[in-house]
Design a binder for these strands. Structure first.
Length: 218
DNA sequence: AAAACGGGGGC
DNA sequence: GCCCCAGTTTT
């Protein structure tokens, strides 16, 4: 796919996604405006639906929006607040551990590089990149399952894992779209370009997609 | 019962 | 690369 085509695709995506609500982690980040809340709600979102993530995040942040406030809660209290998110007990422990380390190693602030962020248990490249881009507004590409699936479905990249997709996009995607593409493709993946059976009929990107007519694909 | 959730870790 | 994690909602 050429640059000309990706410019067209992104313009169409922007237009199309306006009709759908903004993904919840982004909304939560905007409401509380902090790299810390992006980090925590991103951990909550692991293997958990968008609506559940939003509700759980709001419940937790109504009690604490900083590491020093959050460590005063016990693991059980945190677990109760983020229920019914998947793996809620494991995540509660991870969240509290991360808060402790943030206080001990970073004076209660959140580091702003992927390399530092992925040293925390429960934080991988997806979460780290979302903190960097959404939390700090710095260059980065957050590749979750939606970004991975859709860019491959387009034929824009040909990769086996989300991490490989991130590296491929860092080489080929114009920097002006780096921060934005996650929000757009999460929304598109939730409302049209579904995981198993995408709604290709009426898709504004149909002419740019290499899998036209394919109703079942990875 | 099985698949799906905006993954991550360990091997 | 594969398998496990440990929970709910949706089909």
């Amino acid at each position: 796919m050429k640059d000309q085509q990706i410019h067209e695709a992104m313009a169409l995506l922007r237009q199309e996604c306006r009709q759908w609500p903004t993904p919840s982690v982004t909304v939560v980040a905007q409401r509380h405006r902090s790299p810390f809340t992006v980090l925590i709600s991103c951990i909550i979102s692991l293997r958990t639906r968008d609506a559940v993530t939003a509700a759980a995040s709001e419940r937790l942040f109504s009690r604490a929006v900083s590491p020093d406030a959050l460590v005063r809660l016990t693991v059980d209290e945190i677990a109760d607040l983020i229920y019914p998110a998947g793996f809620f007990r494991v995540k509660a422990g991870q969240i509290r551990d991360i808060c402790c380390r943030l206080l001990e190693e970073y004076g209660g602030t959140v580091p702003d590089t992927v390399e530092e962020l992925v040293r925390f248990k429960g934080v991988g490249r997806k979460t780290a990149n979302l903190v960097v881009t959404l939390g700090y507004g710095k260059p980065g590409i957050c590749v979750d399952i939606h970004v991975h699936r859709i860019t491959n479905r387009w034929g824009y990249v040909a990769t086996a894992t989300p991490d490989e997709t991130e590296m491929a996009l860092r080489r080929t995607l114009p920097p002006e779209y780096w921060i934005e593409i996650n929000d757009l493709l999460v929304s598109y993946g939730q409302h049209r370009c579904f995981p198993t059976v995408p709604a290709c009929s009426g898709c504004p990107l149909a002419l740019l997609c290499s899998r036209i007519g394919v109703t079942r694909s990875k």
